[in-house]
């Protein structure tokens, strides 16, 4: 049952990722990407990390994708006026894709014996309660840093996208 679910989810993830890239209309791309992110959240749920699954949906599918869609629509890019890349580039892209895939997979195959069989101990390590404690004890400094980073990003985004005054 879980196995089947995993394969379905994987198929959705990969397929929607491909479609994200291949669809000509950026809005379609964005929608495919949302689906991709949902499926990844499903993977997280499968792995029993409910907190991350939720956060992922909120941050990626919610915030980031809304931001992207908003930008696309702001720029009025919904019509697919993009000029296709030259055929050579496309071939190179495909070659690269195959090459890096081949090398990663084969290097994994080389190292496969290193992976031991998995044993579950039943220790609670990924409930929201535990994660919260870890985050605010061990990682409190990076946590605060992340907060500052987001603040800076906000300020920076406002500053960059602000319309320049003509006089300047």
């Amino acid at each position: 049952m879980i196995e089947i679910l995993f394969y379905i989810l994987s198929a959705v993830t990969l397929g929607s990722a491909f479609l994200t890239i291949l669809s000509k209309n950026p809005i379609h791309s964005a929608i495919w990407l949302v689906i991709c992110f949902f499926s990844i959240a499903g993977h997280y749920a499968l792995l029993n990390s409910q907190f991350l699954a939720m956060v992922h949906i909120i941050v990626y599918s919610g915030a980031i994708m809304i931001l992207m869609l908003f930008t696309i629509m702001l720029m009025n890019l919904n019509i697919s006026d993009e000029i296709a890349k030259p055929i050579v580039t496309k071939i190179i892209a495909t070659v690269c894709f195959c090459l890096i895939g081949f090398f990663l997979v084969s290097s994994l195959a080389q190292t496969a014996p290193a992976l031991e069989t998995y044993t579950q101990t039943g220790v609670d390590f990924q409930t929201i309660q535990v994660l919260g404690k870890v985050l605010l004890n061990e990682f409190v400094l990076p946590f605060e840093m992340a907060a500052i980073l987001l603040l800076m990003a906000m300020i920076g985004a406002v500053l960059i996208s602000k319309k320049e005054k003509k006089t300047a």
Binding site: L67, P142, A153
Partner: peptide, 29 residues
Amino acid sequence: EDANGQVFVFFTMAVAAAEVAIGLAILVA
């Protein structure tokens, strides 16, 4: 069975959010 990995994912998301915000702002500009 280690929570640290998930904490890192959490931070990655924060960074990604920041990156998207800035990147899109640059694109708009």
